[in-house]
């Protein structure tokens, strides 16, 4: 095995691990998208809120990282709840595009609010995560951690959706919202819970992102678009599809960055997304109904 192949292998492995982060990012959005049928265009900025929460509690107030991380999950969960209660809910009976645009306003708001409070500087936790070495392969520990957490988050969400009444109701709403009241389900409440859980997943993703990169007010632009693409490609509300799409995209980006450049790798990924939308608008992994 030549040295070149080793680098390629490392790239592929890192791609898989990066896929875990993307999958986790897509998870919360997918849930909200699939169940409430709204796109939080500000989703990446909501993740950013979690990153700033951790930064503020850990670095400024000196909380232990674990507590700061838990606060991120809870805090962003509350943000999700508020987004639904204050922005989406008044717009539920208007055209779906209005909901998307209103959360676009939220995007501007969160970006500039972060600038207002923390300034435009790049902030980080000042942690240096170890690099693991397996023979001649170097793997970033934070990525490995992110991958593991993504798996755990997925499984937890899966169990919640399949093993609890409210989780079953959340899946049911995504399939037929009009008859939910016949089941005695208060759709409003299901939406609020879904938004809170979606927010909580964003808070979880924030933990993993803040371990590997600096946070700044415009960080959402770096991973926001790819997250939307993954959700749609996987098929709305299809958690497994979203997971697979995350790994396809992450491999394209990882290997593309290796052979050409990061930007062109993203260009390829986005063009693939556009093509998929033309050929299979219901997503790559959705059974045609």
């Amino acid at each position: 095995m030549g040295i070149f192949d080793f680098y390629l292998l490392e790239t592929i492995i890192n791609g898989v691990l990066f896929g875990g982060v993307l999958a986790l990012l897509a998870l919360g959005l997918n849930l909200v998208f699939g169940v409430i049928d709204v796109i939080w265009i500000a989703y990446a900025e909501i993740v950013m809120v979690g990153m700033y929460i951790i930064y503020y509690l850990n670095v400024v107030l000196g909380w232990p990282l674990v507590f700061a991380a838990l606060a991120s999950i809870l805090g962003v969960g509350v943000v999700g709840l508020l987004v639904h209660a204050l922005i989406i809910s008044p717009l539920l009976d208007t055209p779906p595009i209005n909901q998307l645009l209103a959360t676009g306003g939220l995007l501007f708001f969160l970006q500039s609010f972060a600038t207002l409070i923390f300034g435009a500087e790049f902030r980080n936790l000042g942690l240096s995560m170890p690099i693991l070495q397996f023979f001649e392969l170097y793997i970033s520990f934070s990525r490995l951690l992110a991958f593991g957490t993504a798996l755990v988050g997925m499984i937890a969400l899966y169990l919640f959706l399949t093993r609890t009444y409210i989780g079953t109701a959340i899946r049911a709403v995504a399939q037929d919202r009009e008859i939910m009241s016949l089941m005695g389900v208060n759709t409003r409440k299901v939406y609020l819970i879904t938004s809170a859980v979606g927010g909580g997943m964003a808070g979880l993703a924030a933990i993993l992102l803040v371990l590997q990169q600096d946070v700044h007010p415009f960080i959402g632009y770096t991973f926001g678009p790819i997250t939307f693409m993954i959700c749609v490609m996987g098929g709305l509300g299809n958690l497994l599809g979203g997971f697979l799409a995350a790994f396809i995209m992450s491999q394209i980006i990882s290997i593309g960055s290796f052979y050409v450049s990061t930007e062109l790798a993203y260009v390829i990924a986005f063009i693939l997304f556009i093509a998929v939308m033309f050929i299979r608008p219901e997503g790559l992994f959705q059974r045609r109904a």
Partner: peptide, 26 residues
Amino acid sequence: RFRVVGHYFALITLALGEVVRLSIIA
């Protein structure tokens, strides 16, 4: 032609804007 509308049209164009931006940077 393929009747991509609503959310999906918005997301496709979103991707398009990014494709152009990233190509320029590349």
